[in-house]
């Protein structure tokens, strides 16, 4: 069974880019448009990986990650966040919130797939 990935981003085009890249690599991709939707979808089923933007309306990525980590069912689920800044402060904040890793935008599809493979360990 292919790994299931939830991608949370308010930008439909970015979600599409992620979906195209990951489904092409054989992953099953579910999309959510903001943190609230992402939280809902993530807790409804357990995904193998969650990829989320940080800057989103309704609920930002950091808050979503923090909320997710509060839920015992989400322990250990890798969460990779996307950021435009290679700003260490942001990364530290996200890690403190419970993120597993990050990917700096802009990125190539191959980078995304590599990151997915990396955290999924396959």
């Amino acid at each position: 069974m292919s790994a299931s990935i939830l991608t949370v981003d308010d930008s439909a085009s970015l979600r599409m880019a992620i979906r195209v890249a990951l489904t092409g690599a054989g992953y099953a991709v579910t999309e959510a448009g903001d943190g609230v939707e992402g939280l809902g979808k993530a807790t409804a089923t357990r995904f193998d990986l969650i990829i989320t933007d940080l800057n989103m309306p309704n609920m930002d990525g950091l808050t979503m990650i923090r909320e997710l980590r509060k839920s015992p069912s989400q322990a250990g689920v890798p969460i990779v966040f996307l950021t435009t800044e290679s700003d260490d402060a942001i990364k530290a904040q996200a890690r403190a919130a419970g993120a597993t890793g990050w990917l700096v935008k802009p990125f190539e599809p191959t980078q995304l797939i590599k990151i997915a493979q990396k955290v999924l360990g396959r």
Partner: peptide, 13 residues
Amino acid sequence: MANGTNPAALLQE
């Protein structure tokens, strides 16, 4: 580990 880091994956890498 709770934050999703998988040691097995790291070893594999």
